[in-house]
Design a protein around this nucleic acid. Sequence first.
DNA 1: CCATACATTGTGCTCGAACACAGTATTGCG
DNA 2: CGCAATACTGTGTTCGAGCACAATGTATGG
Lengths: 345, 345
Amino acid sequence: MKKYTIKDIAELAGVSKGTIDRVIHKRGNVAKDVEDKVKQLLSDINYQPNLIARNLKNNRIYQISALLPDPQKDAYWQVCSDGMQQALSEFSAFDIRMNTFLFDPTDTKSFIKQHKKLLDSTPDMILMVPLFYKEAKTVLEEYKSLNIQVCTFNNQIDASAASFIGQDLYQSGRVAAKLMHSIIDNGDMAIIHIDEKYKNAVHMQEKEKGFKSYFEDLKGFKDDILKCKIRYTETEDKLRDFLKDHPNLTGIFVTNSKAFHVARLLESENKNHIKLVGYDLLEENVRFLKNGVIDFLIHQNPRQQAYLGLKFLIEHLVFEKDIPGQYLLPIDIINSENVKPFLRA
Amino acid sequence: MKKYTIKDIAELAGVSKGTIDRVIHKRGNVAKDVEDKVKQLLSDINYQPNLIARNLKNNRIYQISALLPDPQKDAYWQVCSDGMQQALSEFSAFDIRMNTFLFDPTDTKSFIKQHKKLLDSTPDMILMVPLFYKEAKTVLEEYKSLNIQVCTFNNQIDASAASFIGQDLYQSGRVAAKLMHSIIDNGDMAIIHIDEKYKNAVHMQEKEKGFKSYFEDLKGFKDDILKCKIRYTETEDKLRDFLKDHPNLTGIFVTNSKAFHVARLLESENKNHIKLVGYDLLEENVRFLKNGVIDFLIHQNPRQQAYLGLKFLIEHLVFEKDIPGQYLLPIDIINSENVKPFLRA
DNA sequence: CCATACATTGTGCTCGAACACAGTATTGCG
DNA sequence: CGCAATACTGTGTTCGAGCACAATGTATGG
């Protein structure tokens, strides 16, 4: 039951602690037979180094840098800093310095620029949102060549060595579909993609696929699933036209956080019979959820994503824990009654 | 930016580190003027002790004991040990010894007996499920008089000094109501309490209150909310009768984890048009959720409750963090499409 | 045969906090 | 004045791991 120390092992092996240390850290200069004996002993008693002592001795200042979208440009990212703050407070016993670099989520140039600035901060590890596929891929290559561990969240850049935290978007589309299916009886449905200024195309396509797949799996389902792509600048007019063109509509699925645009219109045109499912707990979305215009929101939990990402990085630094290659968060279903605790958590 | 050590402060104050230490730990034997000066200095530079060093020096073995229902008697509790395991693994750097005492959730005597055994393990802190109100109250008094910090979860024993982790049950009833309201159009609803062998009466009553309050808040709602109390042993017959007596039924809310009993009957009698909302991700519930007999389950997340409870206790021991008096988990809504990640998490 | 290179092993200090104990100064009392 | 009690203050060791450096022992070449 007692925990063995290096000193204990030295006594057991009949050598000094220096030798044990050399074996553990493969620093050489140990006779072959002694090395074998010590290795055997270490595995026999399943030696676990005292990480408290190790950290005290090493006494390092860890530098973690983050490359994130600017919450001033898109409120979705506001809660990330809360999550990071929580992780930092849990590990306040260690000296961890954070440097956060915010880029404009509508501007790839800003992404590259902030990435360059980040490199100057000589980070031990990096937390980032690889919002732009092509640019992110380049940037990740660079980190890899510099041998810096990276943890990404929100956007999955496949075939990269970096670890990823996020949600299964296809499945999230299926969740939306199931919700829709349970609240509407018949009539047409529409999937509405409201383009953000930056491309979240992959996100939205995956969700659409999932949504459709749910209804395809149903035997005997025959109502239409319409589709509507709207550019950010022309949202209101195009939406109004779309609703006019499809009077039979009973359900709308908005594939990103812009459901409030649709909600606004539905409210002003008194089309409250149309069910609405969307994403993310933005202030405006929550307002429409509470007054019943939006029926369900799916929570992508950016706060938790940032929290976990930073936590994984820190645990790797201080405890040498493995970082999971991929970690998929549960898909939270939110209605007007359970929304409250999610706003703070 | 640099972190100050006791040695730094000693130099700044022009005294030795021994004196600084005496001031910090209020060990007396310090001249009044020196004490004031050091105190001022400490607060000026906002001294934070290096908790790594403190833990290395103290080098204590912490003993935490848990008093939990036996998962063999009720599968609901199975996942608690996973949560506890996760907390332990996160703090594996510290020497924390767990002793778990399992009681029969149908037997108050067993609760008391295991509590007595627990006391023999001389714990520093206690994690417990205060399942039986009266007995728990006594037991908590005893812990208090012994000056042992306790963290409770699942059942809230009001007016106790112990901290509590769980859900807002009233609100959880409202969530169920909102779900029900969104999936049924008209017809009668029923709240069904299926008594467990042990009393969860308070739980179920709170949920019922919440459920009703939601519909009372709706203007113009006039359908009936029926109520049915069933004892565990007579479940099937009484349920069958109840369904026969109320052919107009379109929605059933089961206030605990026993929804699968109702689901079984609905399936065998081909009454799939009746919507069903219940609690907890038991294997059987999940099966009926996936095949569509159960529409929604509310997840009380006992795994997370146990995880957080243990984590709070450990963080208090090793980092002297405060334990929140009450911590309410978000109320998770589960349907057939998002259930999967909740089963492991 | 001794000096030197080389392989191997042991010793001792460090990280920062905690605390026992030794040391110094001041006061009171016979 | 002297001696002890009291009131402070300073020193040194410990926790376990990591690492620099000292200290062994052995072999090789001149």
